[in-house]
Simulated assay, not measured.
Amino acid sequence: MAKSKQSKSVTCTPEELDDIITAPSGGLQMLPSNAYDEVYPRIYVGEESIGKSRVGLRDLGITHVVNTAMGKGQFYVNTNHVMFQKVGIKFYGFEAMDMLNFQLTSFFEKSADFIEHALKEEGKVMVHCKVGASRSATIVIAFLMIKRHMTVQEAVRMVRSKREIAPNEGFLQQLCNLNDKLHNSGHFEGKKVDVI
């Protein structure tokens, strides 16, 4: 099937995204060096320790939390809306596994809407998972694509410029699929990209 020149320029592969992610570290996959980082104005990506710390979140001025690894067990972070009500933090969480075949796509729109609502309220959002490298990073990249009209490459570069990330290959493919879908719907055409 022949593709137009324009669609070819935005099509991506997980390998291409992995190259963007590993380029700053000489081709090596790096885990985050900080518990959290601000990756876009008022959006933070973090690990379990900050995701569970009501005092730490409050001190940072966080008003909204997205737990992308909700649940009990070794690979999850056991938090819920009740524990944040007392400190006035709004919460959205879902149980996602950091596995190649897990469909994180079903959480892209709702997470993006929650983050966008927080920013419109002049809030600050902490998006976290266990390590703050795969699930949470993928959700923030999807937000930048959906709500800030960045291509997947632009969104990955922005997040990686602020934090070491390591979305699994399956998540990278889902981001590529989202990129194709947004491109085919005209989402990126004539949009001013807000790059910091």
Rank of each mutant, 00 (worst) to 15 (best):
Q6N: 11
V10S: 08
D19V: 15
I20Q: 02
I20T: 04
I21Y: 02
S25L: 13
G26M: 08
Q29W: 12
Y36V: 04
Y36M: 08
D37M: 10
D37H: 00
Y44N: 09
E48D: 12
I50N: 02
K52F: 05
K52T: 10
K52H: 08
R58T: 15
T63V: 02
V65P: 00
V66C: 05
V66Y: 00
N67Q: 03
T68D: 08
M70A: 14
N78G: 07
V87N: 08
G93D: 04
G93S: 07
F94G: 06
E95F: 00
E95N: 14
A96T: 10
M97T: 14
F114D: 03
E116D: 15
H117E: 15
A118K: 02
L119C: 03
E121Q: 15
V125A: 04
H128P: 06
G132W: 00
A137L: 06
T138R: 03
V140L: 01
K147Q: 11
E154K: 11
V159Q: 02
I165E: 03
P167K: 08
N168L: 09
F171A: 11
L172A: 10
N177E: 13
L178M: 11
D180V: 10
K181E: 15
K192T: 14
D194P: 06
V195N: 11
I196M: 14
